[in-house]
Design a protein around this nucleic acid. Sequence first.
DNA 1: AGAATACGTCAGCCTTGTTGACATTCCAAG
DNA 2: CTTGGAATGTCAACAAGGCTGACGTATTCT
Lengths: 160, 160
Amino acid sequence: MSTDEKLMKGIEAMFFAYRGFTQDPDRILAQHGYGRAHHRAIHFIHRWPGTTVSNLLSILGVTKQSLNRVLRALIEDGLVESAKGTVDKRERHLTLTEAGSALEAELSEAQSARVQAAYASAGPEAVAGFELVLEAMMDRDLFGHYKRLGDDRGTDRGET
Amino acid sequence: MSTDEKLMKGIEAMFFAYRGFTQDPDRILAQHGYGRAHHRAIHFIHRWPGTTVSNLLSILGVTKQSLNRVLRALIEDGLVESAKGTVDKRERHLTLTEAGSALEAELSEAQSARVQAAYASAGPEAVAGFELVLEAMMDRDLFGHYKRLGDDRGTDRGET
DNA sequence: AGAATACGTCAGCCTTGTTGACATTCCAAG
DNA sequence: CTTGGAATGTCAACAAGGCTGACGTATTCT
C-alpha cells in the first residue's frame, strides 16, 4: 500500500471512528435535551472540579459567549454550580452537583464502554500505539492549556 | 494507571486529536467560504468518482436536505459535476471538476501533512496499533455502507 | 486613580444538522 | 399499462452551537 493510501485510510478511519466515539453519548445527551457542547463542559468540570470559566475557555477553544450559553443551561438545570472565588472574587469556580455527576457518570460509562471494547479487541500494544499517534496529532494550543491545568493541579493541590 | 484513568486519557486524546486533525483543512475551507460538510462531500466524491447521492447519504449519515445544500453550493461553484445516470436515470453521478480536484488536493495535502507527521513521530508499529483501535471504534452503520461501496467498486467496475 | 482581567449578556450572523411536505422521474411488478 | 415505490430535488421552518462586536460590572493589579 502506498503512503498516500495509508494516509487516506488513516484519515477516513479517524472520521468513522470519531462518529462511533460520539454516538452513544450523543444519544444520551439528546434524551436530556443537551448536545456535545454540554458534554464537553460536563466532562472537564468533572475532571477538574472547581476550575474557572477562563480555564474552560482555554481548554475548549470556544468563545465565552458560546460557552456561556451552555453553562447557563447547565447551571439553571442544577447540574453545575458556579461559586464566586474566595481568593479572586472575579473568578467563578465550577463544580458538578449530584445531578451533574450522575449525568457525567452515565455519559462516561457509555463512551468508555465503546473505547474499552475497542481497546480489548485491539490489544494493549495497539492501544499504546493508538495513544502515541493521537498525542502527536493533537492540537497543541488546546492541549497546552490542558496540560498546564494538570500541572497546576499536581503542584498546587496534590492528586485526589 | 487504573483502567478508568486509561480510558479517560484515551477519550480526551480523541477529543484533542480530532481538533488537530480538522484544524488545517478548516482554515483552508474558511478561505473558500466552505465548512467541514463540504470537505466530507469533496473527499468521498474524490475517493469514488461517479458515486451517487444516496451512496453519499449512507456514508455521511446525514439527511438528503443537509447534503443537498452542500452539493448545490459545490455544483454552482463548479467544483462538482452532477451527471444523470445512464443506466438508472434517477441517479446523479457525482464527480469533481478540475477546480474541485484542485481544492481536494489542497485539503488532502494539509490534512495528510499532519497525519504524516504524527505517523512519523510515533513510528510504524504505533500506526498499526492506531489503525487497529480506530477500526474497532468505528460507527458500524456508516462504515458498513463505506465498505460495501468499496466492494462494489472492486467487483463490478474494477480498479481505476 | 486608572488599566487590565474575569465574567456575563444582548444582538445578530453563519454553518450544518433536523422534520415535514411535496413534485418529478423512473424502475419494476402486477 | 398502470401503479407503487425508490431516487432525487426543493421549499419552509427550526435548533444547536459556533462566530463577531459591543457593552457593563466587579475586582484586582500597577
